[in-house]
Computed example of a mutant assay.
Amino acid sequence: MKPVPRGPNPRSLTPGRIGLYIFLVSAVVFFTLPLWIMLTTSLKTMDEIRSGGIFALPTHLDFSAWKTAWSSACMGSECTGVRFGFWNSVKITVPSVVISVLFGAVNGYALSFWNMRFSKLMFALLMLGAFVPYQVFLYPLVRAMAELSLYNTLPGIIAVHVLFGLPLVTLLFRNYFASVPSELFRAARVDGAGFWRIFGEIMLPMAVPMLVVASIFQFTGIWNDFLLGLVFAGRDNLPMTIQLNNIVNTTTGQRFYNVNMAATILTALVPLAIYFLSGRWFVRGIADGAVKG
């Protein structure tokens, strides 16, 4: 009996596999190097920053820059740190994410299963709005918000984020619900279930992975936003990104690089934590239909 020829060992280091490893390691170094520089610089004193190498480890851990960045870093004449911007970002982001994801889920569900009149036209117009640059809408929105007494208010900036987030969230949920077997919807209709009962008891529980994906997309986009917050939030509701910009660009004497780096990490810490904690759900939601359709 002739032995069955075996293919190459999948664990063997072929030239292609070695090239793949080199590419992956290079990508990891490329994306983690800025974080390494920011982290090590934030833990150094200014004397050590001026005398040492940019990639060198701190001789001893100094968290004073983090304390300054959080509570007493200067933005012009105000020295209050980024803590107020953090809570402003929370007050803006959380309701914006909840409202836009809920409305987007309802829109995607309606456009997937309910043959409404002009539904395709409405979806096309909604998607068209997603590709128009923000700058085109700024002046009309400013005038509209001013007429409604919402300009430079917390409800106003929340409404703006909801409006700009609806097209993407609707697209995600529409594609997800389109992958659900239509027989499930028809069976519920035969049993007498209506629009909201089918949505609340059948479709929404099935869409938990997509809820996570849409929430992550919305959360990171709104938390990292600069332009809309600068235009619509108002002085009392400036988000963390704008306060970070004000801290970095404030020049009164010497520039404190350790404080700037600490403030930058503090601003990016919440989105990074969300990605790390919900990565499994994010990948599952993408695989279950985020890019279908």
Rank of each mutant, 00 (worst) to 15 (best):
T40M: 01
G19E: 00
A69L: 00
V25P: 05
L272P: 00
Y21N: 03
A178T: 09
M1I: 10
F195P: 01
P8V: 12
Y139K: 09
F30T: 11
L154I: 03
Q243H: 10
E48C: 02
G104Y: 00
L39K: 10
G221M: 09
Y257P: 09
W281G: 15
A273C: 03
F226A: 04
L163F: 12
F118K: 11
S182D: 14
L172G: 00
N258E: 12
Y109R: 06
G108D: 01
P209G: 02
Y134D: 09
R143A: 04
L24S: 11
R189E: 14
S64M: 10
T93Y: 00
E183M: 08
A56S: 15
M145A: 15
P10W: 08
L121D: 06
E201S: 15
I54G: 09
V162K: 05
L154D: 01
I158L: 04
W196A: 15
L121A: 13
F137V: 08
S26M: 11
V208L: 13
G108A: 08
F217Y: 10
N245S: 12
N224M: 01
L168I: 15
S100R: 06
T14V: 08
I265T: 05
D236E: 06
M261Q: 05
M210V: 06
T80I: 14
F31L: 14
F84A: 15
G285E: 01
V28T: 13
G229I: 01
P15T: 05
I54E: 01
R17A: 09
A178H: 13
V25R: 05
A207Y: 06
P95A: 07
M127K: 04
F131K: 01
R197L: 07
N107P: 02
V82T: 14
G194P: 09
I274R: 08
F84Q: 13
F276E: 06
M75I: 03
I274Y: 08
P205S: 04
V270T: 07
T220I: 15
V28F: 12
T32Y: 10
N245T: 08
M1C: 10
F173W: 04
F103H: 02
R83L: 07
A193G: 05
A268C: 14
L204P: 01
R189L: 11
H161N: 12
E201R: 13
N246K: 11
V169Y: 08
V213E: 03
R280D: 06
P167H: 07
L141T: 14
R235K: 12
L39M: 12
R117K: 14
S51H: 06
I265N: 00
M127H: 03
D236V: 04
L13D: 12
A178M: 08
N258H: 10
G229V: 00
G104N: 01
F195N: 04
V169I: 13
K120A: 04
V94A: 02
P3A: 11
M75D: 02
T252S: 11
C79G: 05
Q254C: 02
M122T: 11
L211G: 04
L154N: 04
V162M: 13
L238D: 02
F86R: 05
T32G: 00
V160Y: 07
L168Q: 14
F63Q: 07
G81W: 02
Y176T: 03
F123D: 04
I49D: 07
S64W: 08
R235D: 14
F219Q: 06
F23D: 10
F23V: 14
N88K: 04
